Simulated scan of single mutants.
Amino acid sequence: MSTMTPRPPGRLIGASLGPGDPALITRRAWDALQSGARWLYPVKKAESASYALGIVERGGLHVPADAEALVFPMTRDPVALARAWSRAATRTVELLREGRDLVFLVEGDASTFATFGHLARVVRELAPEVEVDTIPGVSAFAAAAAITATPLAEEDETFAVIPAAYGIEVIARLIDDFDTLVLLKVKPLLDELIELLRQRGLLQHACFIEKVGAPEERIVHDVAGLAGEKVNYLSLLLVRNPERVRGELRRGCRKRL
């Protein structure tokens, strides 16, 4: 009878790469990429290009021969999604049980609207002993705000980040509740958003950013000029509402001197 101790599984590392500019890859993520861990990266379908992998390649790192793609299809079909997630997580666990760390490449920040969080949850369901390490990174909206010199929030201001798919009625309400709105994935609703901003007198306080940090980055301040245009999936709107009426703030319990 064999008395060999089972090999402990490797760690699953979510390496945030930023939204497109390899100069925004953090030192910690850069070290993980060169640690000897096996690379996993997401693709929309088999044999298609990976946006996350492209960020690393532009940074000058050589893609290891054993790097492996995991397919996460762009669909809302719950059956197809469940099947894809199951395949990806099962394959990840198989590789982790070989005892080698895996580094999963994540565009933007791994904790913000990212594939990694869901993958990590399913992996833990299949293999609770697996250690997960999430490396934070620069989100697309933070990079967009910086490159356009748009403050997300100053002093006592507020901001919200939402996918535009929540719809025009929700967005119209939030305009009154926040000083800045970050609207993600605006492609399907862009014309409706432009009309809403026109009605609210906020067009001059909005900015459109597409593929921030990538070579194809595009910044448009004349948002009205985008009406009728098909834009990239990786696009967002920053909307400031300088006339927002704020309620009274509670300053805390510290005694005044």
Rank of each mutant, 00 (worst) to 15 (best):
I219W: 04
L33A: 03
E192W: 05
P19V: 06
G10F: 09
I194T: 04
V231A: 11
V186Y: 03
L236K: 00
D21I: 06
Y41D: 09
R251L: 15
V79P: 00
V130Y: 08
T26V: 05
A145V: 14
D31Q: 15
R251I: 14
E248G: 01
A29Q: 00
R83L: 13
A165K: 13
G247L: 09
S111N: 10
S16I: 08
L236N: 04
D109Y: 03
V138D: 01
T134I: 15
P22Y: 02
G18N: 01
I147D: 07
N241W: 01
S48Y: 06
R58D: 12
A65D: 15
A23E: 15
R58N: 09
T115D: 10
G10Y: 05
R27F: 11
S139I: 07
L40H: 08
G137N: 05
D177H: 13
T112H: 06
L249F: 05
F159Q: 09
G247I: 11
G137L: 06
T112K: 01
V106D: 04
Y166Q: 12
D133W: 10
A164M: 04
L96P: 12
R256T: 15
L12M: 06
T3N: 10
V122I: 15
A160V: 10
R198Y: 07
R124F: 01
R91F: 05
P188E: 08
D66N: 13
E129Y: 02
A227F: 11
L189W: 09
L174Q: 14
R76S: 11
